[in-house]
Amino acid sequence: MTAPGYPAPKISLRHIGKEFTVRPTKENPQGSRLTALQDISLEVAAGEFLTLVGPSGSGKTTLLDILAGLTKPDNGQVLVDGKEVTGPGRDRAVVFQQYALFPWRTAAANVSFGLEGATGLDGRKLSRSQRAEKAREYLQLVGLAGFEERFPHELSGGMKQRVAIARSLAYEPDILLMDEPFAALDAQTREQLQDELLRIWRSTGKTIIFITHGIDEAVYLGQRVAVLSSRPGRLKQLVDIDLGDRDGDVDLRSGAAFVEHRHRVWSLLHEEVLRAQEAGHAKIQPDGSAPDETWDATPQTTHGKAA
């Protein structure tokens, strides 16, 4: 199942690096450059479910943005099916933590958003009724049949995320990029959606890259877990997960295999979390500011040593 040595990986990251300019503040009038990602190389096989964990500020979301084509890397390149990614494309879909549903559209209209202007198998644009049919089909896949005409504000958090997943699946991308999609949900809903995601993954054969800060979630969902280091984010280790037979009603999370894998990922991550805390790392905002940053004059060298 693992990617290395695979003849044609679905996604390959080659020496990805990304820097940010921290906006000048009173304490730091010149602003500074900080490295979010450094030399990340990774290959993902077609149909693989890869989870990505890392401490806060390790550049997980930045990496996902690069994969989605929303941000350009400063170094390296991303190949999908051997072709370089230069921007967003219909072969990849993103599911965001805050759902990102269009509040003026009903659930069905949200799902069919990506289908507007899309062409069907016969090369013609999908008609309104064809789009509605597809929306219904995918809402049913995520267990929301009958909620087609609801507006997002009429749905619960879990239901909103189901709609968002349906929207991403509806235009049939090969790759699903998920940025902490279940982080805002309550524990029960989260477990339920995790199982549904696995079911959908098995039935559709998508390649999934799933970012999370939950170790349990990473181990439970992923065939491999990629652990990122604290800033600058680098690939610390890839952990293969083998939980055996997933079918049946067995509580996998209490099994010995799960506990063992979980502990491995936890130890890897724990060192990085501590390091990140010492350095006071926080999320870099989209506008380039890092609210909790306490930079000295030579941030780069300090953190170079730390990592």
Binding site: G69, A93, A100, F102, P103, P286
Partner: peptide, 25 residues
């Protein structure tokens, strides 16, 4: 801004982005 990112990730052109996301919102 998340809605713009979501629409961008679906590969919308600038004009479509105006028409389908920015204007209705």
């Amino acid at each position: 801004p998340l809605l713009i990112r979501a629409a961008r990730s679906l590969g919308l052109s600038n004009f479509r982005l105006f028409q389908k996301v920015i204007l209705p919102s």
